Simulated assay, not measured.
Amino acid sequence: MLGSRETQPRQLIVTIFGLYARAERNWLSVASVVKLMADLGVDGPAVRSSISRLKRRGLLHSERHAGAAGYSLSESTLDLLAEGDIRIFERSRSEVGDGWILVVFSIPEVERDKRHALRTTLTRLGFGTVSPGVWIAPGNLMREVRHTLERRNLVSYVDVFRGDHLAFGDLRAKVRTWWNFEELNTLYADFLVRYRPALHRVTAGKLTPCQAFTKYVPLLTEWRRLPYRDPGLPLSLLPPGWKGETAGELFDKLNRALSGPAREHATEVMHG
């Protein structure tokens, strides 16, 4: 199974809920999740243990429907998944003319939990670090940044500015100090190595719905981490040999080929 050796069961479970629970009135039975995870090579005890962890973390809530035990996604998790849908399936690339967003903050030591939450949030939004209290992102992310900071009650800790780089120095050189492109490009290259060999068989329609499911869920689980690391900078500012565009095109092709048959299999298991 592609990608499974580095993926935790709880990450696969979140992907399954994100893909299929929202279309099922935000609920999946425990039995369905166990069966679907078995298709991914994860046994029942590991599934139940992972679900318990997700419940303790507040991502899932236990509910019974028609006497059957199951779980629903919490409101905060639903919001995160909705944000993720845009990042994963509607990736956008900025242009130089979009300018930049600067977030400036200074949070006292006694509120270091808020400082950690803010840094985590900015990282997930694709911000780079100019200095410890000054973070930067492409200007086209402004709406998403505003919404996310408001939803997470972090607006009182930040000032947000928007502007252009006027002078001095080479902007291409500067962005490479603000973001770790080498690490991100390595992740994209690894994704290409891992999933490119499957492209022909997948797009030729030679997989059963179950086989499509076993490839699609790990694929999406691995891919969904990458758009959060990538700010979508203009191509003219990215380093030579950038793999992000090629990896994104590969994901799009695999997503189009696998998502439908995978859903067919999941629906059969959930309603079978």
Rank of each mutant, 00 (worst) to 15 (best):
M1F: 06
S4Y: 11
A23W: 08
R25N: 13
M37L: 13
A38K: 11
A38E: 14
G44T: 11
P45W: 04
R48P: 02
S50L: 04
K55Y: 10
G58D: 06
L60E: 02
R64Y: 03
A68R: 15
S74M: 05
E75P: 05
L78P: 02
A82Y: 13
E83Q: 13
G84R: 09
I88Y: 00
V96I: 13
P108K: 06
E109P: 04
E111S: 12
D113Q: 09
R115F: 04
R115L: 11
R115Y: 05
H116V: 15
P138Y: 05
G139T: 09
N140G: 03
N140H: 15
M142Q: 12
L166K: 09
L166D: 08
A167Y: 10
F168Q: 08
D170N: 15
L171C: 07
R172D: 10
T177A: 11
W179K: 00
L184Y: 01
L187P: 02
L187C: 06
Y188E: 01
Y195L: 02
R196K: 09
A198H: 13
L207R: 05
C210Y: 06
Y216K: 02
L220I: 11
L220V: 14
E222D: 14
D230R: 06
S236L: 12
T246D: 11
A247Y: 03
A247N: 03
L250M: 01
L254G: 03
N255Q: 12
E264K: 15
E264S: 13
A266I: 10
E268K: 15
